[in-house]
Simulated assay, not measured.
Amino acid sequence: MPQPETTVERGIVEPGYTHFDELDSMGFVHNSRYMVLVERALTTFWARQGFAFTDGKYTQPDVFLAVAEFSISYRAPIRGTGEIGIHLWMDKLSDSSAVYGFRVLSADGGVVHAEGRRVHIRLDPKTLRPTAWSDAFNDVAKTLL
Rank of each mutant, 00 (worst) to 15 (best):
H113I: 00
D139E: 15
A52V: 09
A114E: 01
D91P: 05
A107W: 00
F53W: 15
V8E: 00
M90T: 02
P15G: 12
K142G: 06
E39D: 14
G50I: 08
G116R: 04
T54Y: 08
P61S: 09
L93E: 15
F64H: 12
P15Q: 02
R33H: 15
F51A: 13
V104S: 01
T143V: 14
R122V: 13
K92W: 01
N31C: 02
F137C: 02
D91L: 15
D124W: 08
E115M: 07
W133Q: 04
G101F: 08
H87T: 01
D55L: 07
A41S: 13
L23G: 02
L37D: 07
E69H: 14
D91R: 15
G16Q: 10
W46Y: 07
R103C: 15
A52I: 04
V67E: 02
L42T: 10
D21Y: 15
F102D: 11
P4Q: 00
H120F: 15
T131M: 12
D95Q: 13
E83P: 03
L65P: 03
A76I: 01
I86A: 08
R122Q: 14
V63H: 10
A98W: 01
G50F: 04
R75Q: 05
P61K: 11
L42V: 09
V29D: 08
S106W: 02
R33I: 10
D124M: 08
F45E: 00
A98M: 08
L128W: 04
F45T: 01
V104H: 08
G116Y: 02
L144C: 02
R79M: 05
I78K: 00
R40V: 15
F137V: 00
G56H: 07
R118H: 11
Y17P: 03
E83L: 11
I12D: 14
T143W: 14
P130V: 08
W89C: 09
R75N: 05
V104T: 03
S32R: 13
D91K: 07
P2R: 09
T54P: 13
L23K: 05
L37N: 06
I78T: 03
R10I: 03
T127P: 10
R117T: 08
P130I: 06
F28R: 01
R118T: 05
A47C: 07
T7D: 11
D62L: 12
V38M: 11
T44C: 12
R48F: 10
S106T: 12
H87P: 03
M90D: 10
F28G: 09
L88A: 05
P130E: 00
T81H: 06
D124K: 01
P2T: 09
R48M: 07
K92L: 09
E22S: 04
R103Y: 08
V8H: 00
V63D: 10
T44L: 03
D124T: 10
V63P: 11
R117W: 07
